[in-house]
Design a binder for these strands. Structure first.
Lengths: 203, 203
DNA sequence: TGGCACCCTTAACCTAGCGTAAGAAATACC
DNA sequence: GGTATTTCTTACGCTAGGTTAAGGGTGCCA
């Protein structure tokens, strides 16, 4: 009963510890609208061309969001583990076909809410508008930071920063996935890792 | 009286046409808290190390937001012209020193609101929370799109996309600034532009 | 206990885009 | 209206990172 909170309890806990905590009533409204779903490794929450119907909160397991370019290569945009959200906002809000995939890297459990139900929460309970505003703001800040790095930093620096900023992802993900997130090939990441060991502190 | 709305009228108009329109009272609250400011070409709204005290809405003129890397090079993160916002959210919300500059590329007029006044609007008028949630969502979507391109597209493709996605910026900005936004050197952009003319449609 | 799928590494060769330099064209400002 | 500062272009050598290919490791399930 300690490591495995009931999924909805995990979500309430999440708001309580990082956002404006919910009242009993708001928690009930939450429970009424979020649905639990378990998915296997390799299964998709979303595929290119589909409309993203749900916002998803990860209760257990691990996901990646990625796009496929015209030469067929995958480019990871985002990872999500426990207590993180994974949703293609562009598709979700505009109700247009997604240009990305969301795939489970491990067996997983998520809580999902439909677009209309979320808008409903927004209109009836001020606090959700606010909590989601803050949530998206934080995402925006993280994205801007990453964009800056991708424009201005070398692959080695980006890897280094990834390790310090996202240790919980780094510990858990295979290097192939990390390479794709950093925008380099697995082969080149391998070379970087070797060099880091060889010339450690850098003179 | 047609092209030059009063600044506050421009802001109300902005919400009216793209977001949930404001009531008379909300517009008055807006007027009470936003301050007009004019800046010369080259002047800074924000410099690295300062805390970003204001959210800024551009009424006239043109700005760039950029970061300077450790070798002294500038990297443009964002442009803003009339009816666009330019604010370092990371610094503004956390009240921490900014890592970026915001500089006027043309003589400009902005409307600015202080952090506390904005939070005040959020708590007293539900609609601002909502309008700003949507505003940030749209910014997030644009950023993600750009990140994807910077990971997966070639410099020439990025330039092409820039021209089609942001014609109003492209028309107005010098190529040096555009190059910095795309993450390439002005010299290389120049080469791309030459090639586009030489081999036009691409067989 | 063997096979299959996935992951990591190494190495040799290749290319997109950078750095530098320097002249020409355009624009800002007094 | 004229000078000074930006901006744009061209060219050439150079480096970060990609590509291809191949070998070895590891865990999983039959």
């Amino acid at each position: 009963m300690e490591k495995n909170l009931a999924p909805l309890e995990a979500l309430s806990q999440y708001f309580r510890s990082d956002y404006f905590p919910l009242t009993k009533q708001e928690e009930e409204e939450l429970a009424r609208r979020f649905m639990e779903r378990t998915v296997k490794r390799r299964a998709f929450l979303l595929q290119e061309g589909e409309v993203c119907r749900y916002a998803s909160f990860v209760v257990a397991g691990c996901f990646k969001m990625y796009a496929v370019d015209k030469s067929g290569k995958e480019h990871n945009l985002l990872f999500a583990v426990e207590n993180e959200w994974i949703t293609d906002l562009a598709s979700f809000y505009a109700e247009q076909p997604a240009r990305v995939y969301v795939e489970a890297l491990e067996p997983a459990t998520v809580l999902q809410i439909k677009h209309d139900d979320l808008l409903d929460l927004f209109t009836h309970y001020h606090k959700f508008d606010r909590n989601f505003r803050i949530l998206v703001e934080r995402g925006y800040i993280a994205l801007q930071d990453r964009l800056l790095q991708s424009i201005s930093a070398t692959a080695e620096e980006r890897y280094q920063n990834f390790l310090t900023q996202y240790p919980h992802w780094a510990r858990r993900l295979p290097n192939t996935q990390i390479a794709s997130y950093l925008g380099i090939t697995p082969e080149f990441l391998s070379k970087i890792r070797k060099d880091r060991v060889t010339k450690p502190g850098k003179a």
